[in-house]
Amino acid sequence: MKRQVPLVLVLLFGLFMIFQYFVPHESSEWVYEFLLDWIYIIGIFALALGIWSLYVVSVDKVKTRKHDWGYSYVTLAGLFGMILFGFTARHGDEWGWYLIFVACVLLTVIMSVQAMAARINKGLPLGLAGLFLLGAVLIAVFDDTWSFYFYTQEGLQSTMFRAFFDYIMMPILATIFSLLAFFIASAAYRAFRARNLLASLLLIAALIVMMRFFPYFGENVGEFIARVSSWLMNVPNLAAQRAIIIGVGLGIVATALKVILGIERGYMGKG
């Protein structure tokens, strides 16, 4: 039961998808579209698993006092702060006690994690957590410059949610992406110390293509390099890509077939 049912499901759905590819009829299309929706919806449920894992690992780091455990609080604060912003919004331009409320909630989380991690003296963090929780509840009840939104999307448009997205997520994301420029420089340096024939071939091709962007060669040489590099991109590149694509395609097809037939079941664990 534990192993057979999933394998039968894989076989059934796999065969159906192969089958539907050849059946253009509306009814097969109908099931196909629903199946794709299902996968998408199940994926959203899975996010909860991920958040749980992130929480558990962070708390665990604090508990075991693994090195850099203090930063786990930063992760937890970012996580709970952002979730809170996604479900609350201010009514107007007044801030009221909103930020203090957020701080109280975050401190409650941090103190309860602290209480979980503490071996002795659990009382102090626990008491503080209770205190902060009380503060948060009181503010939530009496402050009406903002409120919770559990069933409309105000949270997504709230100032803080947007601010965290625009001024924390996006800058870090763009910066890490731009680190690629430095890393590619060091990778290029690594490639320069070509150790063998294959690495040299790679290096020469890379140099030719890169030289196309340098304006120092004069018109004739520049023109020649541009032509060679575009030939490299269009001809040998095309050939090698095609060989890889055919290979990868066969690999994917064979693996998919093994999965459908239940020959490859490594992904399912054994227990």
Binding site: T75, G78, L79, M82, I83, G86, G155, F164, M169, I172
Partner: peptide, 16 residues
């Protein structure tokens, strides 16, 4: 660490 926490929550809220 901040980035990890914020981005994980962002996807959850957005997905919800």
């Amino acid at each position: 660490h901040l980035f990890v926490g914020v981005s994980a929550a962002f996807w959850m809220v957005q997905g919800f």
